[in-house]
Amino acid sequence: MVKLKSNDDKEFEVEEAAVIQSEMIKNMIEDGCATSVIPLPNIDSKTLIKVIEYLNKHINMGKAAETGEEDDLKEFDEQFVNMGWEELFDVIMAANYLNIHELMELCCQSAADRLKNKSVRAVREMLKITNDLTEEEEQEIINDAPWAFEGPEIDDTVN
C-alpha cells in the first residue's frame, strides 16, 4: 500500500498496483522515495478522491480487455467525467501533476467535447470568461473568418 496526503492534510491508502499508473509516483517508488507518506501539495482531498477512484477502477484494465469488461470501463469513464467544470479542471491539473496519461486524455477530451460547436456566447457563459477584447478587435476576427461563426451546428445553449 502507498500513502498519499492531500494539501488539506488528509491521508489516503492506495494499492501500489493502482497508484503506479501515475508516472510521477511510479518513479518515486522506483527511486525509493515513497517509503512513508507522499505529500501532494497541489491536490486537494476532493480531487484526490476522484483520482483514486479512477486509478482503482482502471487497475485491472489489462484483465478487463481479456474478459470483455471493456464496455464496463467505458461506461465508468463516461460516468466519471460527468462533473462540473471546476472539478474537471482540478482533475486535469492533478492528472497533469501526477502524470497519469490516460486520465489526462479522458478529461481533456471531455472538456473539448463540451466546447465543440458551442457559440462564443455559450462558451463565455459556461467558463465565465471575461471578454477583454474591444468590440473592434472582436469584429476584426469575425470579419476575417465569418464562416467560423455561422452554421446550423453552432449551439448557443449552455449545458
Binding site: L115, K116, N117, K118, S119, V120, V123, R124, I129, T130, N131, D132, L133, E138, I141, I142, A145, W147, A148, F149, G151
Partner: peptide
C-alpha cells in the same frame, strides 16, 4: 479549425 477560430474571440 472552425472551433479554434471561435475561441479566438473569447479573450486576449
Amino acid at each position: 479549425m472552425k472551433d479554434v477560430i471561435r475561441t479566438g474571440v473569447l479573450s486576449k
